[in-house]
Simulated assay, not measured.
Amino acid sequence: MIALTSLWQIPLCMFLAKKLGMLGTVLINVGVGFGLNVMAVKTSMWWISPYSWTTRIMCPILGILPNGELAGIGDSLRNPVVIPIGTILSIILFALLLIVTANWFKKQEVN
């Protein structure tokens, strides 16, 4: 599930690496990923931030909160409804980014 819900980052990072280089890509991914993940994962709007999807899906699968503590029996983060939602959103975003970046890379000149 972690690999599946993180697939959308591959075309995004390839595009960013071409535009900004490796250091810029890493800094943006770590900064935005850390910020959006922490802010969104425990809210009801978690589905808006792609960086929170993997973390949110792992809560009901593993029974562990994002901070590493065990989730209680009645904890709202253990709701398994988020699993198909996050998975479908990840696949859709991956497909969209793949199409957009594939078209962008196709237009690039070969060096």
Rank of each mutant, 00 (worst) to 15 (best):
M39K: 10
I73Q: 06
S49A: 14
M58H: 05
C13L: 08
M14G: 12
I61W: 09
G68W: 00
I28F: 07
C13E: 07
G21I: 02
E69R: 13
G68C: 02
L36H: 05
Y51T: 09
L36Q: 07
V38D: 04
I73W: 00
G68I: 01
L12P: 02
L36K: 03
P50V: 08
I10H: 00
L36G: 11
P50S: 11
I64D: 02
W46F: 12
M58N: 07
A40C: 10
N37M: 15
L36T: 08
S44A: 13
L27H: 02
A71E: 03
T43E: 11
W53C: 07
G24L: 08
V30C: 11
I64R: 09
V30T: 12
N67R: 07
A40D: 01
M58T: 08
G31R: 04
W47C: 03
I61G: 06
P66L: 13
W47M: 07
C13F: 06
I48V: 15
N29A: 13
N37E: 15
L12F: 13
F15W: 14
P11L: 13
I61F: 10
L65W: 02
C59Y: 01
T55A: 14
L12Y: 09
L36F: 11
T25N: 07
K42Y: 10
G72T: 04
G33V: 12
F34W: 15
T25F: 05
W8H: 08
P50C: 11
T55W: 02
V41K: 04
G72K: 02
G68F: 01
A71Q: 04
N37K: 15
N37Q: 15
T55G: 10
A71H: 03
I73K: 09
I10G: 02
L65D: 08
W53Q: 03
G24F: 02
F15N: 05
P50K: 04
I64W: 01
L16M: 14
E69S: 14
V32H: 01
I57V: 12
A17G: 13
A40Y: 07
G31V: 10
W46P: 01
P11V: 12
I57Y: 00
C13I: 00
T25L: 09
